[in-house]
Design a binder for these strands. Structure first.
Lengths: 358, 358
DNA sequence: GATCAGAATGTAAGCGCTTACATAGCATTT
DNA sequence: AAATGCTATGTAAGCGCTTACATTCTGATC
């Protein structure tokens, strides 16, 4: 961890004292001119600002942080940046926070609970004053650690009714119940499910549970060979659809996917297999990525406004930092986007019942 | 900018002095135990670490930064996080830097030169010790500002031969020359081009120039109605392809796209228009996104290892911080991925009409 | 046994800024 | 004219840490 180099420091020999001298005031006035302009007479303020500009000076954040006990830093913990969903959440959060002078530190867990805990520790050590965390299934004690420091936080992306944490997000279980409802209403009774890894991922777990619960209400259950768990990629979607359709026994008439990439993969494989969508098979996604409306047939999926999640999380944290005791934010709604990849099953139920009774 | 709240500060009453007292040593030893463990006798080090753990203490970064004149902060300026290309670059950069204890600040310009300049100013004010910047077409003086502070920087994503800046990236012009070469070799002489906004974007400009130059060598020029500039979306790709193919006069036999999203849009529209790819029309993309190999036909495109760009940028900056005077990094290679969306033009229009009537 | 190099630890002076408190200046009020 | 309040500014004490330098101790060398 090289400690060498860096003596140079271009101009930055200037300190508040130099600016004060040049402007003919005290350092206190210099500080106030920058941090509480309204407390300084306009003409003096001008003089200070001009002197600062002349010397290319700006308050050194370490000194400021030390003296004021404010770092103006916030952190956000996400699984990965390599995913539109989180990238846009972070983007919006950052935009909002930086408008209030707060800089955002980003920590990626790579879907690993240990890394997540580490990142949080690091951000805390860096002095973040607020934290947004994706999901609530983390190492036990993680939220306690945060609270112990008196740092306000908010869970994002998921909103589980009954969760002890303030959260900005939608109800993943409800969203998948909605999808199930749609398919059940169309008349489907045989389902497949392709989903991403569920370990340490409460969002995925909630989705699966939502789906199972809604199906169970109609007395429908997922048959194990029709459930596939793996990487959230197009390739895994393809592979899984093939495996599901080739499984012995009756084929499902609807396959629910954990996200759009999986669904797009399933769609591609269905075409390759010569299976008609939606006549023979309905397929649903989740996220509503740009590609979803361009597939053939266009994909029925759920839309979530990720940027809005970021914005609301930022607003909530900002309110906390302002000392207000904001009410926990209300859940967001996810919206079912009906397109052509879902339709009523054409095959007579009789047939599949007959098959099943064999 | 609410200055309220935050008196609480959970435990963190602990300071180095408290840890020192508990461990029965001086603050200097506490500091050394954390920053230069090899200078402290093992058993004392243990005692200090235990005391710190007991009090939940870790060095306060502001104090450390102030005393050591090191912030262990680096910045990266990108157009947007809403783009895999930059997201993975940043992800890799961050992973590498954090392994050396450097925290990354991310600034997004939203493709706007003013915002870019602002973000850089902000990061500099925050005390970043190194900076990675996407592209080199920025407000005049931006790089001078950075240099003036004595902050090492590196330009990423593009590598223009002859650029005065150290850069980690590939030669965008060469990459498009490569694409042009491929299509020319197949026998194409009528080209179309669909590209993203070129303002303040040297990468796009270089690509267009590379293409035009390569075509010019064969005496081929792009006809204005066959050139479309707009948002890098699937939708704009579709719309543009239609407009190009509907333009009066001979149709191009090959359409080059500025990225994969545009190319995928073009591919979709070609299918909708009943234009055979690649028999009647060849289409190329850029980036090699996951979807590119799943389209029908799979997309010929250029692959760039964005994560590698991030890694190398990090290594270069780390070397600078270590006081070494690293040589400017060599350019990366982009690779042509040949798939089925390109092929030889079937010369006579007549033939393809005949085919269509089958 | 005295001397000395070298390693381990302590002492204390800041790093650059903010802010509680003190002070000065001035317009009102009594 | 003295007392009062108010505002704009200055004074100076840290914020929590690092590190140059001083000190102490150890074992090796003469």
């Amino acid at each position: 961890m090289g400690r060498g180099g860096r003596e140079r420091k271009g101009q930055p020999g200037a300190r508040a004292l130099d600016v004060a001298a040049l402007a003919g005031v005290s350092t206190a006035t210099v500080s106030r001119a920058f941090n509480a302009p309204e407390k300084v007479a306009p003409e003096i303020r001008e003089k200070v600002l001009k002197a600062a500009a002349e010397l290319g000076w700006m308050p050194h954040p370490a000194g400021a942080a030390l003296a004021s006990r404010r770092t103006w830093l916030a952190g956000v913990l996400i699984p990965t940046l390599d995913n539109d969903v989180f990238a846009s959440q972070v983007g919006a959060l950052q935009t909002r926070l930086s408008a209030d002078g707060v800089t955002v530190l980003i920590g990626c867990s790579n879907y690993d609970a240990d890394q997540a805990a580490n990142q949080v520790r690091t951000m805390l050590a860096r002095g973040v004053e607020a934290l947004a965390v994706v999901g609530e299934s983390h190492r036990p004690g993680l939220f306690e650690t945060i609270s112990a420091r008196g740092v306000p936080y908010v869970v994002t992306y998921s909103h589980r009714p009954g969760s002890p944490h303030p959260s900005v997000g939608f109800d993943n279980a409800a969203a998948f119940r909605r999808i199930a409802r749609h398919l059940l209403d169309l008349g489907h009774r045989d389902f497949g499910l392709i989903h991403q890894p569920s370990i340490d991922n409460d969002r995925v777990v909630a989705r699966i549970e939502g789906l199972r619960a809604a199906l169970a209400e109609e007395g429908v259950a997922l048959r194990p060979p029709h459930v596939r768990e793996g990487p959230a990629s197009i390739a895994f979607g393809r592979e899984s659809l093939r495996s599901i359709m080739e499984a012995p026994g009756p084929r499902p008439t609807a396959v629910v996917c954990g996200n759009d990439a999986l669904a797009i993969g399933a769609l591609i494989e269905a075409r390759a297999l010569g299976i008609g969508v939606p006549e023979e098979l309905s397929i649903t996604g989740f996220d509503d990525v740009a590609m979803a409306e361009q597939t053939d047939p266009p994909l029925t999926t759920m839309r979530v406004d990720n940027a809005e999640i970021g914005r609301r999380a930022a607003d909530y944290l900002l309110a906390c930092l302002a000392g207000r005791q904001p009410p926990p934010p209300p859940p967001l709604e996810s919206r079912l986007i009906l397109r052509a990849s879902t339709g009523a099953p054409t095959a007579p139920r009789v047939l599949s019942d007959a098959q099943r009774s064999l």
